[in-house]
């Protein structure tokens, strides 16, 4: 029989080693001034975006529910963690954890009613929840109200964002490859069939939503302690931010973690690299979004993950490049 055991475990460890080496390389490049502090700063933002995109992909791509209020959870994490460290002197790691848990709890609170809705309704309801969170923050003078929360200590560094991004990807990946993750995917594929097989669909919808919210909360904590300031503007914690994360998820591919990482990386760097790009990106992104849905709805990676098996298949297929219609199959 094929791939009964062993392979997955080895895969995890070898990837971890590679990621460790990558970190050392970045570290050395920074130490020798090949990468300037500005570059490292941007790489940190890439990692924060990876957390956001991967966690939203769990909800959009794997659970298949179009929730578009992700920035609301980011807002909870950003503000709560800042309040904890600034006003109450909490250690930062604890503040991150609490922020994640708080965002996760709010996710459950929102998820229980909202996830009874389907498709369009869920989209609008989550957008609405996100905006309500923002409006509430606007009305709390202690955290700066409309002026924003400034004077947050810089407790986030690149290493921490890197570590948390890795943890997020691994947790989501391992979750998806478990019985519980398969239950989540089955809801996307056919909720009624999943129900008939004994999958408690409400439970798994809320669970996936809460896990996504948890990581968005931790990303928020990292973000506010990275920028040392958090503004309640729509582009920071409102629907514009939510849509931006959604764009990264969709362009990378609903249900592809590799795609999420690639787009989080590319779409965070592009506006920094190309000066004119920032101005036109909000024209280019939506066009890509529409084209993607029309011609390649499965996204860049088409639900595939970059793995040894995938690479093997890719190269094995190459000699017979004329063979059309070979279905990639669901080998995961």
């Amino acid at each position: 029989m094929l791939d009964l055991k062993g392979r997955k475990g080895k895969w995890n460890i070898s990837v971890l080693i590679l990621l460790g080496i990558l970190y050392l390389v970045i570290h050395c490049m920074a130490a020798s001034r090949i990468l300037l502090p500005y570059h490292i700063q941007v790489l940190g933002l890439v990692c924060i975006n990876i957390i956001l995109v991967v966690s939203l992909n769990l909800i959009n791509g794997f659970l298949g529910q179009l929730a578009i209020g992700h920035a609301g959870f980011l807002a909870i994490g950003a503000y709560l963690s800042a309040a904890l460290t600034v006003f109450y002197g909490f250690p930062f790691l604890l503040a991150i954890l609490i922020s994640g848990i708080a965002a996760g709890l709010v996710g459950i609170l929102i998820g229980v009613p909202a996830l009874r809705l389907t498709g369009d309704y869920l989209a609008i309801a989550t957008l609405g929840f996100g905006e309500i969170i923002r409006v509430i923050i606007l009305n709390i003078p202690a955290v700066g109200g409309p002026r924003g929360f400034s004077g947050i200590p810089r407790l986030t560094n690149f290493g921490l964002t890197y570590l948390l991004a890795i943890i997020t990807v691994f947790v989501v990946k391992n979750f998806i490859d478990s019985a519980h993750g398969r239950a989540v995917v089955s809801i996307r594929e056919d909720e009624i069939a999943a129900d008939s097989l004994g999958v408690n669909t409400t439970y798994y919808k809320v669970a996936a939503f809460a896990i996504g919210a948890f990581f968005a909360g931790t990303a928020g904590a990292l973000f506010s302690h990275y920028m040392q300031y958090i503004s309640p503007a729509p582009s920071q914690i409102g629907f514009l931010r939510s849509i931006e994360i959604l764009i990264m998820v969709v362009l990378g591919g609903l249900g592809s973690l590799t795609g999420s990482v690639i787009t989080a990386f590319a779409l965070t760097l592009l506006p920094e690299l190309l000066r004119g790009f920032a101005e036109y990106r909000m024209v280019i992104y939506p066009i890509l979004l529409i084209l993607m849905m029309l011609f390649r709805p499965s996204g860049l990676m088409a639900g595939n993950e970059l793995s040894f098996e995938f690479l093997e298949k890719l190269f094995k297929r190459k000699p017979k490049s004329n063979a059309k219609g070979v279905s990639p199959g669901g080998a995961n």
Binding site: L246, L289, M293
Partner: peptide, 28 residues
């Protein structure tokens, strides 16, 4: 129209894309 029989999430995302596009073009 091309997405009328596609999964709902695809049509919704296109709708969001169309909205953003008009907004950005109008802004420019």
């Amino acid at each position: 129209r091309p997405l009328r029989n596609a999964p709902r999430i695809a049509a919704l995302i296109t709708a969001i894309g169309a909205s953003l596009l008009i907004q950005s073009v109008a802004q420019l």
